[in-house]
């Protein structure tokens, strides 16, 4: 019983990170129908930048993080939208998705060419200790990750629901045409969603890299799982991405311990298949009408 609790909590920590990446994914899909195959690399690149700041420039982690966050927001947020999404969006969903595959190749192999294919250690932003409460062992790091993600989600929620800009962003995500009629500056707000996505990915990088170590292919399975999480929860809802991420994280961890460690990576996939076969709109999603 205690063990199940332990496994569940560390699963929640992993799932919280999936959820953060998945929420960004959902934002881009809602506003521009972008399927961002490079989402995992959007986590890998800031991790690489932070490591560069720490190793080469001898910066403290906090400063390196802020620097990486800003560069990510500019490069993977604004520049990504202007240089790749804007010119290609009129070609449709597939060419855009293929372009993000091209971007994945370029980013991953660029980092590999510069920094090699080995795994590098990455400093923990929070202390790692084992806490025991009523016979249950917790990792303080897992708790800190869950708390950090909760804080980010809370802040994002306040921003999206509590501010004019945030509410306009939601309006754009739900119905771009109507948003135009309402006099909302849709282009600027779409740009914001890209910046928010890049920032979420950078925050995920800070939390996940110490656990998995830094490697050029860090983002490969992360991006894939974030997508599965988004679908499982419901692709047209931020809440769905959050719930989907947590479910995937917890079930993955449980199956790794109790079922078949070798097939841990298949859990997200299995859930995803069940969801698209029996509830394509996702666990929390709204049904979208079949277009005639």
């Amino acid at each position: 019983m205690q063990e199940i609790l332990q496994v569940t909590i560390s699963g929640l920590a992993t799932g919280a990170i999936y959820a953060m990446v998945a929420m960004g994914f959902t934002l881009l899909w809602q506003t521009t129908s972008t399927i961002n195959f490079a989402q995992g690399e959007f986590v890998m690149l800031p991790a690489f930048l932070m490591l560069g700041g720490i190793v080469v420039l001898d910066l403290p982690l906090a400063v390196a993080f802020v620097g990486a966050l800003l560069i990510s927001a500019a490069l993977l947020g604004a520049a990504f939208k202007r240089a790749i999404i804007d010119p290609m969006i009129r070609h449709g969903v597939l060419p855009l998705a293929i372009a993000t595959i091209g971007l994945t190749l370029a980013l991953k192999n660029g980092v590999k060419a510069i920094y090699g294919a080995e795994a590098h250690p990455f400093p923990h932003p929070f202390p790692v200790e084992i806490w025991r409460v009523l016979g249950v062992a917790f990792s303080s790091y897992d708790i800190a990750v869950i708390a950090s993600v909760a804080a980010v989600v809370f802040a994002l929620n306040r921003f999206l629901n509590g501010t004019m800009t945030g509410r306009s962003m939601q309006a754009v995500a739900q119905n771009p045409e109507a948003a135009v009629v309402l006099g909302i500056d849709v282009k600027r707000l779409i740009l914001y969603t890209f910046v928010v996505n890049a920032a979420l990915a950078a925050a995920a990088a800070l939390l996940v890299t110490p656990v998995y170590l830094f490697k050029f292919d860090l983002g490969e399975s992360l991006g894939l799982k974030a997508f599965y999480a988004a679908i499982i929860g419901g692709f047209n809802q931020m809440r769905g991405a959050l719930v989907g991420g947590l479910i995937v994280g917890v079930l993955e961890n449980l199956s790794a311990v109790y079922f078949a460690p070798a097939y841990k990576d298949a859990v997200a996939l299995g859930l995803f298949v069940l969801v698209i076969l029996f509830r394509p709109e996702g666990l929390l999603g709204r049904e979208e009408a079949r277009r005639v």
């Binding site: 597939l94 091209g102 994945t104």
Partner: peptide
Amino acid sequence: ADVWYLVIFGIFVVALMAFCP
């Protein structure tokens, strides 16, 4: 081009999608 080959290839794919999908 060695390790940079795939970087160039990735950029080529992006460019192809932009100009001639």
